[in-house]
Every structure is written in structure tokens, then in C-alpha cells.
């Protein structure tokens, strides 16, 4: 689903670099294992095509789950880039929009 490499920017967690496909898959699997009861849902998604074979997606990721019997909920806005490479649409970048800064 993702291009190789894929850019990830999540500044409040000091992440701003390219990830190769294996590294990204490992991180997703590790997150799934750490947070097995967490539900991930996407809301308010819009897609724009700024140029041919490129798409810009804006969406909100909502997380709900439990950590040590304590219910938690959180939401993040994402700007996702997608590119059509060899006839396939692949995600090329994920940016967490930091609209609220301490």
C-alpha cells in the first residue's frame, strides 16, 4: 500500500524521515500488538488531485481503546500523499497536522 520509501512526519513525536516498506510494516505490526483493543477509524476524508498521478488526502484518524483498564480516545488530522506508480496508487507520505501547539 505504501511507496518505498515513504515519508512520515509526526513532529510532536520527533519523527520526520523516510521509512522503508519493511520498517513501516514492522512499526504498524508493533503498534497493533501494543494496542490490541484499539479501534482506528477515519472521518472527514477529502481527496484532491493537484496534478496527474498525484493525490492529496486529508483525513482525521480517531483512536478509541483501553490501556490498563483505562478507556482512552484521541484524534489526529493527517495529510496523506499518494502517487500512481506503475499503474498502482501507493501512499507516499504521511504528515500529522500539528494545528495545536503548546
Amino acid at each position: 500500500m505504501c511507496s518505498d520509501p515513504c515519508a512520515v512526519q509526526f513532529l510532536s513525536f520527533s519523527i520526520d524521515r523516510d521509512f522503508d516498506r519493511k520498517e513501516l510494516t514492522d512499526h504498524i505490526l508493533m503498534m497493533k500488538k501494543t494496542l490490541p483493543t484499539t479501534r482506528f477509524t477515519f472521518h472527514d476524508t477529502s481527496i484532491a488531485f493537484p496534478e496527474e498521478n498525484r493525490a492529496a488526502i486529508t483525513t482525521t484518524l480517531r483512536l478509541t481503546g483501553k490501556i490498563a483498564n483505562d478507556r482512552f480516545t484521541d484524534a489526529y488530522e493527517f495529510d496523506i500523499g499518494a502517487e500512481k506508480i506503475e499503474g498502482k496508487w501507493l501512499f507516499s507520505s504521511f504528515t500529522v497536522v500539528e494545528f495545536m501547539e503548546q
Binding site: H43, D44, T60, A75, Y76, F99
Partner: peptide, 11 residues
């Protein structure tokens, strides 16, 4: 209420 990418999820 502070919106994220739309009005279905707000802070």
C-alpha cells in the same frame, strides 16, 4: 469546538 479535518470530529 475546534475542528480537525471536518466537523465529524472536534475538540
Amino acid at each position: 469546538t475546534v475542528r480537525l479535518s471536518g466537523k465529524n470530529t472536534m475538540f
